[in-house]
Amino acid sequence: MNLILIIMLAILLIPLYEAWQDDNIWQKVLAFSSIASKTSIMILIVSILRDDWMIGVVGVIILSVGNAALMLLAHIIKRLNDL
């Protein structure tokens, strides 16, 4: 399980690098959405690894709420660009 988590961390570095080097704001938002879902899955894995139900609940809540925040952010950025 530790190896799985390390591989996931390595994959997580790809969108991080993308958010670092790309100057288009939509590419950054894409990287953000990728990172948000990946981190919440990682939280789920950690909760299974430790057999801790509380962390798992937090992971699922972040999984659903983080996406809602992302949608609001996308709409706000769209309005900003319309100006």
Partner: peptide, 24 residues
Amino acid sequence: YHALVVRGIVGAVAALVYAVLGAA
């Protein structure tokens, strides 16, 4: 505006760190 999006990334990573360290 880019800083806004990166702030979201920092938030996601911070949530991961806190969860891994046990502070749900």
